[in-house]
Amino acid sequence: MTEFTPYASLAGGLLIGLSAVLLMAGLGRIAGITGIVGHLLPPWRGEVKGRAAFVAGLVAAPLIFTLFHLPLHAVTVAASTPALVVAGLAVGAGTVLGNGCTSGHGVCGLARLSPRSLAATLTFMAVAFVTVFIVRHVI
């Protein structure tokens, strides 16, 4: 069980939106984690430094909580090692093939009213709902 956290979740969502708007207003870029990380992996193409800075900021975010002694939401991973490997491979291959993930399609794409991103978001949400249903209630 996890608790319903409407205020914290809305506040967090607004921060994610703020980050996406900053990247667009500042650099004209989509805040898609798949695209940003993809540019940092072989075969390297496009500008690397700025994208590396974005990922560094992302990875450093927990430090802010430590620095200001703020309570940090627990991160609980229930999946087994084989499941994590399969899941990681599926997420990596799927996001590259589909050109985006929850951020690029789910946030930036929907905000641009892109039909392509809507199709991608509906697809990954539907498959994720079915996967969790099978894993938790069928198997």
Partner: peptide, 10 residues
């Protein structure tokens, strides 16, 4: 791609 991603996410 989106379906494969959804599977891993789930």
């Amino acid at each position: 791609g989106a379906a494969l991603f959804g599977l891993g996410w789930g």
